[in-house]
Design a protein around this nucleic acid. Structure first.
Length: 881
RNA sequence: GGAAACUUAGCUCAGCUGGGAUGAGCGUUCGCCUCACACGCGAGAGGUCACGGGUUCGAGCCCCGUAGUUUCCACCA
């Protein structure tokens, strides 16, 4: 940064250059160093399915803020980046890409498809990496990982085998969620439920041996092809006599029994339920209890199979229509009632999920869940904000076994090998040579792959070398904070916690910082289908990375959603420009050899701003330690703009402009400017890394880099309470004068005498010390400070501020009536204030119960306002003469 | 059917362990191109903190209830 700077900040000129410098110097890289404390975080690996969206920008900005902060505090900060193979999502994307080229993935075969998908991975992982770099994030690129790289795959295999050997992984035939489009099983978490308008078809089933019918209601009539019973509530008087009898399944013309089961709700529908064990999770349970046959009537693509008789080959909804039509024609359909019900859909493709019975691999969850619940209760793990504890616990306490096998190619293949001869399987690290069951030597590996979350669950330790007991693992693990959105607590956070506890005996992190969603300006979720997504790169291009980052953290509390719109980024951009220009002003005037001045040379203003930045450092640190990043950055913003720019820089101009006459005073001002700006830049750096680094390098050219400099800490010697008080008085006086002038339409260029009358000796003395500096702020050509009102003409306007009365002789402009009106308004206000304070102080309970400090505070206020009121009244009396 | 969050200035949102809403940005009114910045400077206007109770000397904040909005979970055929 040279001294001839552009009037507006141009992020494009510096961002790339600085990022390269940081990378070249390995500032992001961390190695084991036992002399320092580590601070570790792992990046939630973005899916390689596409480019990053605003949610990623938020997630990574938050992490970068924390990691930069900790790094400056002296921690050995490690942030591991990486990407996720995103099994089904990626397979769908690549399959579609192939389809566009007219290629069926089956033609390619497994190997060919995988080769193609690895190509895809290379391309997208590269794109994602570049995007992250644009965001300025300081993760350790030397440690970049991928959920399907060698190390992660090794960890996956090891975990699978260990859990299998422990009996926690099993293969079983259970009812699972099936996506007929992706042709794979899904876990419960991957199924989204949405309410759809459907119908209730009331159908009558003839009771065998009578002329009676049993009426049932169903939302999915096509499943009747697989009905193997009707269930009623055991205590339902209506059906008491029918239990044990058979009914005739219409269309199929098969007799099925009526069973009694507590699952049935007497009040709902007709109180009689058709039971299709193979196509409904509840019916499956009922079926187990009553030993019912399970008839699977569907193929993997949700067409009706050969068990469906004449409906075989039909697509599921086509079959539904045909069956309803037939029922109606044959007189079995009683009525159709509109009915809204919840339908499960695949979260990746939106297809309605079909519950089917399939052989799948499962993780037994009950034992694994217990330590994860315990970790939260003991405090080993905590959520910020705390309300997510409930979400976490509720899920774990109601957890069901996790279906982990997927019938797709892209993913970690299950390490189970089937004997070609006897069909028995062996779970092993390598393909076995001899079958322990039959002695045969030919094996085929299980075709299935694992749920994508199976590998991401290991991310915090697989990326550090587990299952090897590496030095990295020992030193950096457990990690410290995990930053992620509330939308993947179930998918990911919970699974990482129980996996970490199971395999490393430790919670993988002590804190989970949860953030919300970035929504559009109308509060809608950003989505491809709505086309309302905002590309972070476009924003960066338009306003700069720092502006984007600032926008993403201001005015937001942890866990809350935010709305994103251009006006907010503009405000951030404006702030960047403000910082830029204040710095430009300082650098333009900066001398080579500024030195720390004697305390005696410092003006009250210098001490005040030092004191302010000192307190700021303390407050910001406290807020950041509590993850209150929005509050922290707001304080920095306010300090820089309001205190530093609007007051201090203005107060310093006189000394700077009179450098030649008084170099010592100028030095003092410059040193303070440099020191305070330097500290402010440090505090701001985690939020706005580029602009702060750029300015700092010009301000402190001898220092290597701001990002590796030390975080400001509170120092007692910069605590100047008296000067803080004095400057508050000075501001009150200045505002009083400006207010008066504005109200009276005094032209800007008209300078006046200013009389400050006060009994406060310290105030008078302090003002006197800064008189030349203060003049421009008060639009004064002369400031007279005195302890009592002497030769001030009555045709002056006056304003009473705490501790002083200020007069402006504005003979020609004074309107006595107006002046009296103004004063009486002020009198009224003060009377109200006094009444309020008196009211509190006359309440005995307040005096006896409120903390002493609070009582003293109110007494002080009462005194202050009473004094001001006297001044106002005195002035009014003078005017009335 | 459970659970959570939200309801504060025209808009979007902050408000830490309860102690005068001197809250922020945007918008708006008035005056300023004052030699760092018009992406700016100065001065204003604008709020019964959803509603009703309760606890407390004191409630935007704690407790209970009501209404509206949003989200998550759940097997109601």
């Amino acid at each position: 940064m040279s001294k001839e700077l552009a009037k507006t900040y141009n992020p494009k000129e510096i961002e790339e250059k600085l990022y390269e410098k940081w990378c070249e110097n390995k500032y992001f890289h961390a190695e084991v160093d036992r002399s320092r404390k580590p601070f570790t975080t792992v990046m939630p690996p973005p899916n390689i399915t596409g480019k990053l969206h605003m949610g990623h920008a938020l997630d990574n900005t938050l992490q970068d803020i924390l990691i930069r902060y900790k790094r400056m505090q002296g921690y050995n900060a490690l942030w591991i980046p990486g990407t996720d193979h995103a099994a089904i999502s990626t397979e769908v994307k690549v399959t579609n890409q192939l389809k566009e080229e007219g290629i069926d993935k089956k033609e390619l075969g497994r190997e060919g498809f995988l080769e193609r998908t690895w190509q895809w991975k290379e391309e997208y992982a590269g794109t994602i990496e570049n995007q992250l770099k644009k965001l300025g994030i300081s993760c350790d690129w030397d440690r970049e990982r991928f959920t399907m790289d060698e190390g992660c795959s090794k960890a996956v295999e090891e975990v699978f085998i260990r859990l299998y050997e422990k009996g926690y992984i099993y293969k079983g035939s259970r009812i699972i969620n099936w996506c007929p489009k992706c042709k794979t099983s899904l876990s419960d978490a991957e199924v989204e439920h949405e309410d759809q308008d459907g119908h209730f078809w009331h159908i009558k089933y003839p009771i065998v041996g009578t002329d009676d019918f049993l009426e049932i209601a169903t939302t999915r009539p096509e499943t009747m092809l697989g009905d193997t019973a009707i269930a009623v509530h055991p205590e339902d008087e209506r059906y008491k006599d029918i239990v044990g009898k058979n009914v005739l399944l219409p269309l199929v013309n098969k007799e099925i029994p009526v069973v009694a089961d507590y699952y049935v709700d007497k009040e709902f529908g007709t109180g009689a339920v058709k039971i299709t064990p193979a196509h409904d999770p509840n019916d499956f349970e009922v079926g187990k209890r009553h030993n019912l046959e399970e008839i699977n009537i569907m193929n993997d693509d949700a067409t009706i199979n050969e068990k469906g008789g004449k409906y075989a080959g039909m697509e599921r909804y086509e079959a539904r229509r045909a069956i309803v039509k037939d029922l109606e024609e044959q007189g079995y359909l009683v009525k159709v009632v509109p009915h809204s019900h919840s339908v499960g859909t695949h979260d990746r493709c939106g297809t309605t999920v079909e519950p089917l019975i399939k052989q799948q691999w499962f993780v037994k969850m009950d034992e694994l869940a217990k330590p994860a619940i315990e970790a939260l209760k003991t405090g080993e793990l905590k959520f910020v904000p705390e309300r997510f504890n409930k979400t976490y616990l509720h899920w774990l306490e109601n957890i069901k076994d996790w279906c982990i096998s997927r019938q797709i190619w892209w993913g970690h293949r299950i390490p189970a090998y089937y004997c070609d001869e006897c069909g028995e399987f062996v779970v092993a690290r390598e393909k076995p040579s001899v079958c322990p069951h039959c002695g045969c030597t030919h094996f085929t590996q299980d075709e299935d792959t694992l749920d994508t979350w199976f590998s991401s669950a290991l991310w915090p330790f697989s990326t550090l070398g587990w299952p090897e007991q590496t030095e990295d693992l020992e030193y950096f693990y457990p990690t410290d904070v995990l930053v992620t959105g509330y939308d993947i607590i179930f998918f990911w956070v919970i699974r990482m916690v129980f996996s970490g506890l199971e395999h490393t005996k430790k919670s993988p992190f002590h804190t989970v910082l949860i953030h919300g969603l970035v929504r559009d300006s109308q509060g809608r979720k950003m989505s491809k289908s709505l086309g309302n997504g905002i590309d972070p790169l476009e924003i960066i291009d338009q306003y700069g990375t720092d502006a984007l980052r600032l926008t993403l953290v201001t005015g937001n509390a942890p866990g809350n959603d935010m709305r994103f719109y251009h006006e907010r980024v503009e405000a951030s951009r404006n702030f960047a420009n403000k910082v830029w220009n204040a710095s430009r002003f300082i650098l333009m005037n900066m001398e080579e050899n500024v030195s720390e001045p004697e305390s005696a040379l410092m003006t009250p203003a210098d001490k005040w701003i030092l004191s302010k930045v000192n307190t700021l450092a303390k407050d910001v640190t406290e807020n950041m330690d509590k993850y209150e990043l929005g509050i922290a950055v707001q304080k920095i913003y306010d300090f820089i703009w309001d205190e530093f720019c609007d007051w201090y820089v203005e107060l310093v101009k006189y000394r700077i402009y009179h450098k030649e006459e008084n170099p010592a005073e100028a030095n003092c001002a410059l040193w303070t400017l440099k020191t305070v700006l330097g500290n402010a830049l440090k505090l701001l750096h985690p939020y706005m890394p580029f602009i702060t680094e750029e300015i700092y390098s010009a301000l402190e050219p001898e220092e290597e880099s701001l990002m590796i400099s030390t975080w400001p800490v509170y120092k007692e010697e910069w605590n100047y309470p008296a000067e803080e008080e004095l400057l508050e008085h000075m501001k009150d006086i200045t505002r009083g004068i400006r207010n008066m002038r504005s109200e009276m339409n005094v032209p800007n260029n008209r300078r006046t005498k200013v009389f400050v009358v006060s009994e406060d000796v310290k105030l008078l003395y302090g003002l006197d010390q800064m008189i030349e500096s203060v003049k421009p702020l008060m639009a004064a050509n002369d400031i007279i400070v005195e302890s009592e009102k002497k030769d001030i003409a009555e045709d002056a306007v006056s304003v009473v501020v705490p501790g002083a009365t200020v007069y402006l002789p504005l003979e020609d402009l004074v309107d006595f009536e107006q002046e009296l009106a103004r004063l009486s308004k002020e009198e009224e206000r003060l009377n109200k204030e006094i009444a309020r304070a008196r009211g509190m102080l006359s309440n005995e309970k307040f005096i006896s119960k409120a903390p002493e400090a609070k009582v003293a505070e109110e007494k002080e206020k009462l005194e202050k306002y009473t004094q001001m009121l006297e001044q106002v009244q005195e002035r009014m009396a003078g005017l009335k003469k």
